[in-house]
Computed example of a mutant assay.
Amino acid sequence: MFRSKAKKPTQEALKATHDELTSLKEQVERLMNAHVTPVLADAADRAEHVVANARELTDHQMKDVTNRVRAKPLVAIAIVAAIGYLAGRASR
C-alpha cells in the first residue's frame, strides 16, 4: 500500500520533468531556427562568394603568368633556372 502511494508522486514528478524537458527542447529548436540557422546560412553564403572571388582571381593570375611566359619564354626559363639554383644552394 505504501508503494502505490509513493509511486504516484514519483510518476507525477517524472511526467512533469519530461514535459518541462520537451518544452525546453521545443524552445531551443525555435531559437536555433530563428537565430542560429539564418546566421550560419549567411556565413555559408559569404564564404561561397569569397571562394568564388578567390578562384576568379587565381584564374586571372594564371592567365597573366601564362601570357608572360608565352611572350618571353627565354626570360621565364632563366628565372626558373635561377630560382632552382638558389633553392639548391639554400638546401645544402
Score class of each variant (00 low, 15 high):
G88A: 14
A43G: 06
E48W: 03
D19W: 00
V51M: 07
A71D: 08
I79G: 02
R3N: 07
R30A: 12
R89Q: 15
A6H: 08
K5C: 13
A6K: 11
V65P: 01
T66V: 03
A13K: 10
A34G: 05
E29G: 01
V80F: 11
R68P: 00
A34Q: 07
R89P: 03
T22E: 09
K63F: 04
H35D: 10
E48H: 09
A87G: 11
V36F: 03
G84M: 06
T10Q: 05
T37M: 14
R68S: 04
T58N: 12
T66G: 06
V75L: 06
G84V: 04
V75G: 04
T66L: 10
E48Y: 09
G84N: 10
V39K: 09
T17N: 10
V75H: 04
E29K: 07
L24C: 02
T58D: 08
K5N: 08
V51H: 06
N33I: 01
V50C: 04
K15M: 00
E56S: 14
A82E: 14
R68K: 04
V75D: 09
A47W: 04
M1E: 06
V75C: 01
I77F: 07
K72V: 03
V75R: 04
A78G: 05
A16M: 02
Q11G: 14
E26M: 13
M62P: 00
R55L: 12
A81Q: 08
V80N: 10
L40A: 14
K5T: 13
P73D: 01
Q61S: 07
K5S: 12
S4I: 12
L40P: 02
K25F: 05
P9T: 01
V36E: 05
